[in-house]
Every structure is written in structure tokens, then in C-alpha cells.
Design a binder for these strands. Structure first.
Lengths: 198, 198
DNA sequence: TTGACTGGAACGAACGTTCGTTCTAATATT
DNA sequence: AATATTAGAACGAACGTTCGTTCCAGTCAA
């Protein structure tokens, strides 16, 4: 799984990132002030600006690190599994795991793309993790494991349900852990795009 | 379809709502200042506060009206169609239509639920339109049109893909209109939850 | 001694909101 | 019919606060 961002004992840079992740995830970007981050991290205003330049620099750094670790985890899954079905299923499992184990991280990642969160950030659909998921589905289509159709539609159809379920869990609308819903979710997801041959 | 919120010739209250919808949809809640709304609507600061109390009052009023009209449109579909499949398909068509015809409205509705947008608003998953969609799926399950599984999972599985596709379209990541993807989307959506009997 | 880093006071700008006034049109009074 | 009264709507200048950011004196490692 993804390593959590370190806290307390770590250097000031990491302490700021850890505090910002939690605050951004809970209150959002604009409802979190720099003084809030300064207070929560125990790092001084001057240091924060020395390390990150400005408030957006904090968010951008955070976003980049989250996206990169996410991409690596997904890529690892792609390498480990040969067939499209187990690739997709493992990816959904990964997403569920992260959402349960590190909800702040998942919350940040799911929300960071909105205009409201980070001004002028690349939208999710163009983010590398999503492209990777899309690529897996597209490859499955070439191999005949996935039905022929628009690649984008196929990608959103496998992962769309899982992502929305995660959002519900993060919003507190699901009282049981996501794993309890994994089998049903996966069943729906794969039926949606599986080739009729199989 | 849903009526658009009136502009220019309308009363000050409606002009404020129309301006706020556009601004909130494009820039988000916190990136839109009250002076922005005042400028865009041509209504004075004092009037805005006279009618809506505070900034959040504008957003809440807007949200309530959008949710209510959305719920009515979905309920009309439920009444017009007897079976679950055509109900769900019509609902996806409706969502696609709104996204194409009134992207600001759809953008506002999809984003309004985030902590970042409206502080302390009821999350989507608890909103009445979503409950209505969920109800349709649940009824389909009782009738045997939908496979037996967790109701929530079934609901997010039918509509999750479509909603994510809409988000991509709003983000400018889809160059063709959503209708071009309707058949593929619907095919995936219904396969995901359709009873094996049929 | 030097250079990188830290600290927190201080700054201007922009925010959401308030306030006293003016305008408008309907009602009451003569 | 003409005037006086009034309540609500509209207005925009001004307020206090908080924001993101800067600045510079102080600290510590090399």
C-alpha cells in the first residue's frame, strides 16, 4: 500500500505536508488558512514560505506526491497481474484499502481536481493514474477480454461505481467498511465491460 | 427538461441566483466573492443581503432550488416508465441532457456537495435525487429485474459510470457530446445490474 | 564566519457584512 | 382628489476582520 506521509518526528517539510493533508481533506483548500497549517504543523510561517513559496505550493507539492505514489501503486498492480480482470479488481481493492486506511489521502485525491480545490490543476481525467487505468482497459479490449466499445466509456464503467462508493464512505454514508461491498462492486464492474466470449 | 434560472429581465432575486449559479459553477464557492456576484447580477450589495441574509444563503437557496427541480424531473421519469431498465436509461439520458444543455447547473449540482463548496450541506448520497435513484433500483430488485445484491452498490453501479463521464465532459476532457456515448454507457450500466433471468 | 534555516511581528489587500439613507409604490387621511 | 404616511426594497460607502505574504533579526550547523 501507499506509505503515509510522515508526521511529528519528521523534518519541517514533511510536518507541513502531513498537517496540510489532514486540513485540506477535512476542511478543503480555501477553508484552511496558512496560519492553520502553521499552528497544526508546529512549523513557523517563515519556514513554510521558505520551503513552499506560497500556499498553492503546499497543495501542489502534496498533490504531486499523492499522484505519483498512486501511480506507482497502480503500475505495480499492472505488472503483477497478467489479465485485465484481475488487474481491474486489484485496482479497486487498492482504492478501497486506501480509502479505509488513509481516508484523508483518498479524500484529498478525489477532491483535489475540482476548480474549487486547486486552481488550475490538471483535471482528474487527464491525471496519470486515470490514464493508467484507462490504458489497462484499452489493452484488455485489444486482447478481447473487454467488449469493443468506446475506451473512455469502458474505463469509467469499470471504476465509476467503486469510486462513487468510496465517496459515499468518505461522506460517512456507509456504516460498514468498503471491503464488505467488494464482491458486489466487482461483480457489477466486470459484468459491465467483460467480453461476451468469457 | 429543467427550466433554466431566469436572467436579465427578471427580478433582482432571480438575477442574483442566475449570476451566482454561473460564478459558482465556473470558479467555485470560495473563489467567488460577494462583490463578484454584485457586479455580475447588477444588483446592489444591500439588496443581496436583504434577500439572502448572507453569502451562504445565496448558495443554499440555489442548491435547494436545483435539488428540488432535479428531484421532480426524476420523479416524472419514474412515473412515466413502468420498468426499471427504461427508468434508469431515461434518468441517464436526463442527466446527459442537462449536462449538455445547462452545464453550469450540472456542474453546480455535482460539486455542491463537497465540503469545499457548501459548508455543512447534506452529502449527495443523502440528497433526495440520489435516494430516488436508489429507490428505483431497489424496487427493480424486488421485482426481479435487477440482480440481488446490496442496494447501494447496485445504485452506484448503474449510475456511477454515467456520472463520471459527465464530470469528464464538464472538465472539457470529452470533445464529442455525451449523447454520442449514451448507447455504450447504457449498455455497461444495465449489464452491471441486470438480472440474469432476462 | 558564513550560509541555510527559523521565528513571529507586521503589512496591504480583499473579504463578508453592516448601516444609514434614498427610492418606490401602496395605503390612509383629509 | 390630493396629500401624508409608511413599509419594504434598493443602494453603496464604510467597517472590522482575516487572509496570504513579506521582512528581518536571530539561530544553528559546517
Amino acid at each position: 500500500m501507499l506509505d503515509s506521509i510522515p508526521d511529528s518526528t519528521a523534518g519541517p517539510r514533511d510536518r507541513v505536508l502531513a498537517a496540510a493533508l489532514e486540513l485540506f481533506a477535512h476542511r478543503g483548500y480555501f477553508s484552511t488558512s496558512v496560519p492553520d497549517i502553521v499552528r497544526a504543523s508546529g512549523v513557523s510561517t517563515g519556514s513554510v514560505y521558505h520551503h513552499f513559496g506560497d500556499k498553492e505550493g503546499i497543495a501542489r507539492t502534496l498533490y504531486d506526491s499523492v499522484i505519483e505514489r498512486m501511480e506507482q501503486a497502480l503500475e505495480a498492480i499492472r505488472e503483477r497481474h497478467p489479465d485485465t480482470a484481475s488487474r481491474c479488481r486489484s485496482m479497486i481493492e487498492l482504492l478501497f484499502d486506501i480509502a479505509e486506511h488513509d481516508p484523508d489521502l483518498m479524500s484529498f485525491m478525489l477532491h483535489a481536481r475540482h476548480r474549487e480545490f486547486l486552481p488550475a490543476i490538471t483535471p482528474v481525467c487527464s491525471s496519470r493514474p486515470f490514464q493508467l487505468m484507462r490504458g489497462v482497459v484499452a489493452e484488455g479490449m485489444r486482447r478481447g477480454e473487454v467488449r469493443r466499445m468506446d475506451e473512455t466509456v469502458a474505463a469509467v464503467s469499470v471504476f465509476g461505481g467503486a469510486l462513487r462508493l468510496i465517496q459515499m464512505r468518505l461522506d460517512g454514508a456507509l456504516d460498514r467498511p468498503l471491503n464488505d461491498f467488494l464482491d458486489d462492486t466487482w461483480d457489477c464492474a466486470w459484468r459491465a465491460i467483460a467480453s461476451d466470449a468469457a
